[in-house]
Design a protein around this nucleic acid. Structure first.
Length: 206
DNA sequence: TAGACGATTGTCT
DNA sequence: GACAATCGTCTAC
């Protein structure tokens, strides 16, 4: 059964970030479905999180989606690249989860057209996966997940969930908080090392 | 394989 | 005009 808004409230954002691992993100493209299993996420905890866009309850036109209802989509650009977040917690509590990497499951040929790279390079980074899915603008920012052409379907369970400090967060008192969660051993992780990759199980339970 | 660095673009002050 | 939740390339080991 597909995830709905209820999935994104009623428990801590870190918990939700972990339970998204193994969920298939499906995007209904005009010319066919594309998608993959979520293998890496990061939690951004709003007001008090020095790395979050809403730190200090800062609200601008660009980050307004963070203050939306659970299940709201937050897309934003970074050096001309597009990153995708899912909003957790009730409206007014600006917490979100960044989708950092996917293991492709469907529409791989289409994704390769969108982003001509081979193997894990197709989707092993937050801006890489949006490019591969074919997301080229912010038209779905601030929309509810259920109102946009996206679908989240639970598929697999990780053998082990690992965590680490967030990537690209080097300043502020929260820089070393372990709010990045990933499927241990999955080859599609950003920053993954070859010797850590398990191509037999891909990090999933049988 | 790890680390450094330059490119590049939208947003905010 | 400064900066950023990144990417791709290059270099050294």
């Amino acid at each position: 059964m597909a995830l709905t808004a209820a999935f994104f409230s009623g428990r801590p954002t870190e918990e939700i970030a972990k339970s998204l691992l193994g969920t298939e993100l499906i995007f209904h493209h005009e010319v066919g479905d594309v998608g993959g299993l979520i293998v890496e996420t990061e939690a951004y905890l709003g007001d008090e999180d020095t790395a979050a866009h809403a730190f200090g309850h800062r609200q601008t036109h660009a980050n307004r989606a963070l203050f939306g209802a659970p299940g709201t989509l937050y897309f934003y650009t970074m050096r001309g690249l597009i990153l995708m977040n899912l909003i957790c917690q009730p409206a007014g509590t600006p917490q979100g989860i960044l989708i950092r990497a996917l293991q492709p499951t469907r529409g791989v040929d289409l994704m390769r057209q969108n982003r001509p790279r081979e193997g894990v390079e197709l989707t092993n980074g937050p801006a890489k996966l949006t490019a591969a899915l074919g997301i080229t603008d912010l038209r779905w920012n601030e929309l509810a997940l259920t109102a946009a052409p996206f679908l989240l379907q639970p598929r697999k369970n990780p053998i082990a969930i690992a965590q680490s400090p967030r990537i690209g967060v080097s300043q502020g008192s929260w820089h070393d908080r372990e709010l990045r969660f990933f499927v241990a051993g999955n080859p599609y992780l950003s920053k993954s090392r070859k010797r850590d990759q398990d191509w037999t199980t891909m990090g999933w339970q049988a």
